[in-house]
């Protein structure tokens, strides 16, 4: 454990907030079960939703009773921007896939993620080799899945 990851006493506010969200989720689930006609459909999820509420309330009470519980401190040098970019690029790739097709959207996604994950300088060698490897990986996987495994990958509305 590094010095920046030592436990500190801050309380479990995050855990309490998540429990509140779970209580809302369970309540919505319980409400949804009222529309189900057959008892076979609602007995199990209703029991689980009630259990979720009970456990969440118990944790909230526990957290209130132990406000100085030790929490793990996170490293300071983490990049939230890169994290968000990773998720945004992956989601955008999904939305662009029906239009651009798996291959083109895959190459673009791969290239963008490569830029996001790069922590070193882009020297001349990397500028040439990395894109070539990226294209080889995407085309290799595309060929494996679409030709060998016969998975019908999207071809893209723009190219039909």
């Amino acid at each position: 454990m590094t010095s920046s990851q030592k436990p500190i006493r801050t309380g479990d506010t995050g855990g309490t907030v998540i429990c509140c969200i779970f209580i809302i989720l369970a309540a919505v689930s319980l409400w949804d079960t009222t529309h189900m006609l057959d008892s076979d459909s609602y007995v199990f999820p209703r029991a689980i939703a009630i259990a979720l509420i009970v456990f969440s309330i118990s944790l909230i009470v526990w957290n209130l009773a132990h406000p100085d519980i030790a929490q793990q401190q996170r490293p300071q040098n983490e990049s939230t921007v890169r994290r968000m970019l990773l998720i945004i690029i992956m989601l955008l790739s999904c939305f662009s896939m029906p239009w651009l097709g798996f291959l083109i959207s895959g190459v673009i996604t791969f290239a963008l993620l490569m830029v996001v994950a790069m922590y070193h300088e882009w020297d001349a060698r990397k500028r040439i080799i990395y894109p070539l490897i990226a294209i080889a990986i995407v085309v290799g996987f595309y060929t494996l899945f679409s030709r060998v495994l016969q998975v019908p990958l999207p071809t893209g509305l723009l190219f039909e």
Binding site: M90, L113, V138
Partner: peptide
């Protein structure tokens, strides 16, 4: 390298 690992695993 991480710049290759992240996109490969994501893909």
């Amino acid at each position: 390298p991480k710049a290759m690992l992240v996109p490969t695993v994501a893909f």
